[in-house]
């Protein structure tokens, strides 16, 4: 293998391929610069640009509001980081409950179905307001009474219903023969789920899961409507006092910066699984 040297013709082929690759890179770059340049020119030369520029893209206000937004943004990040794993666990439990076979688990199955149906019917923002204002008023013993805590609970409750449906679709998509062969080996049904069905189902639903998580990252901003001083609240606060909307654009930029790496990571993970587990089967 190691002492193989490419023939003249192979070298020629490679040179041609290289030239073609170079040419397409040049073309791609040129066209991209041209299109984006024209778009920018179109926007900047529009009659209202001057005013829009001042109210939404003002450098001074961006710098002035930055620290308050960053402080608020930590709340969004924390909410997301804490809620996300809880949602995954709860949603998986709900999905498994809906797939339970045993007759005596019928009430669990029905309860899980009811939960997903009802919760998905209620707007997330409504759940947040209800939980944040309603729950502390109950003055329950032994649980935190902060609005922030209950906002987190509301996000977990809301999103776990959606994510449970994603998991359920994934579980249903695994061919029954996989369970059959696990059972034939002597695994119990729960073991078959744990070692065979769920790992494959999770891999299959990574793209829709990612979609829900990008969505969750953004929906952490809904807590501002419950009076939590998050990034959006901070931006609105600044805007109201200074009659400038630049901070809103800054918040948008924060959220974009947070979601892009997550999307890239999931793509990478997905590709890796695809490569080894679906080789030849695609």
């Amino acid at each position: 293998m190691s002492d193989w040297t490419p023939s003249e013709r192979e070298l020629e082929r490679r040179a041609v391929r290289r030239r073609q690759a170079t040419r397409s890179t040049v073309v791609a770059t040129g066209v991209t610069v041209l299109v984006f340049g024209l778009l920018a020119l179109g926007v900047v030369s529009s009659p209202g640009w001057q005013r829009v520029h001042e109210t939404f893209f003002d450098g001074f206000h961006a710098r002035e509001s930055f620290d308050a937004i960053l402080d608020g943004f930590w709340i969004n990040v924390k909410l997301f980081m804490i809620c996300e794993p809880l949602i995954l666990v709860l949603a998986l439990a709900i999905a498994l409950a809906r797939n339970a076979r045993a007759a005596w688990l019928t009430p669990v199955r029905l309860l899980a179905a009811l939960y997903t149906d009802v919760i998905r019917g209620v707007p997330t923002i409504l759940l947040i307001v209800l939980f944040a204002f309603g729950m502390p008023a109950l003055q329950l013993e032994g649980v935190p009474n902060s609005a922030l805590f209950w906002c987190g609970v509301a996000l977990v409750v809301s999103y776990s219903a959606y994510v449970a449906e994603v998991f359920r679709a994934g579980i249903d998509s695994i061919h029954p023969s996989q369970v059959q062969s696990a059972i034939a080996l002597g695994l119990s049904r729960p073991q078959a789920l744990r070692h065979v069905v769920v790992p494959q189902a999770v891999r299959r639903v990574v793209p829709p899961l990612l979609n829900d998580f990008v969505s969750l990252q953004k929906d952490t901003a809904l807590v501002s409507s419950a009076g939590i001083f998050d990034a959006l609240f901070a931006a609105r606060d600044y805007g109201n006092f200074n009659f400038n909307y630049t901070p809103l654009v800054v918040v948008a930029a924060f959220f974009v910066v947070m979601t892009v790496p997550l999307a890239r990571f999931c793509d990478w993970l997905q590709r890796r699984w695809m490569e080894r587990e679906r080789a030849g089967a695609l």
Partner: peptide, 8 residues
């Protein structure tokens, strides 16, 4: 008949 190996 179909091999049913665990794909993952």
């Amino acid at each position: 008949q179909s091999f049913n190996l665990f794909a993952h």
